[in-house]
Amino acid sequence: MSWTAWAEAELDAIRRADRWRATVAFDSRGVEGTLRGRDVIVFSSNDYLGLSQHPAVKRAAAEAAERFGAGATASRLVVGTRSVHEELERAIAAWQRTERALVFPNGFAANLSVLSVLGGPDVTVLSDELNHASIIDGCRLSKATRKIYRHGDAGHLESQLTATPGRKLVVTDSVFSMDGDVAPLEAIAALCARHDALLVVDEAHAALGPDLADLPCELLRVGTLSKMLGALGGWVAGSRSLIELLINRARPFIYTTGLSPADTAAALAALQICCSEEGAQLRAQLRRNVDMIAPSHPSPIIPVILGEDRAALEAAESLLQHGLYVPAIRPPTVPQGTARLRIALSAAHTEPMLQRLREALQSLGMQR
């Protein structure tokens, strides 16, 4: 069989399983835009504070492109570091209350770097079963012994830590990207302190918390510039020693062209807004928006679990007919039998937009 014939057979299998995926051009105007010629409200973006459309953020990107050019032109350790990279890293360290921070071209590269550098044959990595794909792949690359603990189950993690000799690293999302629930970080941090384990927390979706201040263990924080900050890139924040080790050993950092100056400057401007009174107001608005759809839910990610892949696809199409864009999420992104709609809310959504979503969900029998 030729490679092309093999690929066609694989594609046929994907179609038969209702797992077909394809890119769709969405011409965005923030939380509104045009999809296949139809004006829609988007409820699937990770732009939680709406900062991708903020005038100051867009202006910073344009000014950086004019000053530094379109790209960084080389890896950060050659000539790819600009003053704006260092300014952003200092700002992230101050924001996260750590000694240092390091910026990556994307969040996936940040997790690959952390786990491949800190893992090793003498390390056991203990990972929540619903962690993001970048954490899973980082664990695979680490050459460490890997143990998976039940989702959010501190008791199961404790039993695994107790039975594990040697150096240990626990890794978890703070907010899980497909369920929108929150890890029991205080309990996990207490276990890490008791067992001398390093805790790595991915804060990519933590627009509404949880706050990691005063956790009683060694801690390394990972996050993105592309979600709450509305730009592009990833970051790691922690002790000076751990960050400098990443600079010297992380292959996704060493061998990748640096983050573009425009994206870096946009992220810096967004972070400055995020840390201001305006940022506090945006988070308060986001909290109100979440409560309008799912009162007291801990994050802007609200799943509507429908089970079978076909049901999720049909539900997404039904919402699209109402002018609401909420793509179906199917395995392998989520476990078998848990295909769903993943509603993602933003501070930029207005009350009439949210009312349209709520009424559409009710009319289609898809209340959360």
Rank of each mutant, 00 (worst) to 15 (best):
G119E: 09
R59W: 10
S44V: 01
I41K: 00
S44H: 06
G119N: 11
L115G: 04
A101R: 01
G120F: 12
R82G: 02
P105V: 14
A64P: 02
P105S: 09
A109Q: 07
V114G: 00
E86N: 11
L77K: 10
E63V: 08
F108Q: 06
V103L: 10
A65D: 14
H85L: 07
G80N: 04
R76M: 14
R82I: 00
A62P: 03
D47A: 00
S75Y: 03
G71E: 15
L88M: 11
N106M: 05
V57N: 03
A60Y: 06
A70W: 09
V57I: 03
S113H: 02
F43T: 05
G50T: 05
R59M: 10
H54S: 07
H85F: 02
T98H: 02
G80K: 08
E99D: 14
A94G: 05
R67F: 03
L115P: 04
E89Y: 05
L102T: 06
H85C: 05
T73F: 15
S83H: 04
A110C: 05
G120S: 11
K58Y: 02
V103Q: 02
A62V: 04
G69F: 08
L51I: 03
R90F: 08
I41M: 01
L51C: 02
R90Q: 15
R97T: 14
R76Y: 13
N111S: 15
Q96W: 06
V114I: 14
H85Y: 07
L49C: 10
L77A: 10
R97D: 13
V78E: 12
V117F: 05
V57T: 10
P121E: 12
R97K: 14
E87I: 03
A72T: 08
A91G: 05
E63F: 01
V117L: 07
T73L: 08
V57F: 05
A70N: 12
S116G: 11
A61L: 09
S44T: 07
L77F: 10
S52C: 03
R90Y: 02
T98D: 08
E89H: 01
A61Y: 07
T81N: 06
D47V: 03
Q96M: 14
G71S: 13
Y48N: 00
A65F: 12
L102S: 02
T81V: 11
A109M: 11
E87L: 14
Q53N: 10
V84D: 04
F104T: 07
L88H: 12
V117Y: 07
L88D: 06
E63T: 11
R59G: 13
S45T: 12
E86V: 11
L118C: 06
S113F: 07
A101W: 02
H85S: 01
R90T: 15
G119I: 06
D47H: 01
R59V: 12
E66P: 05
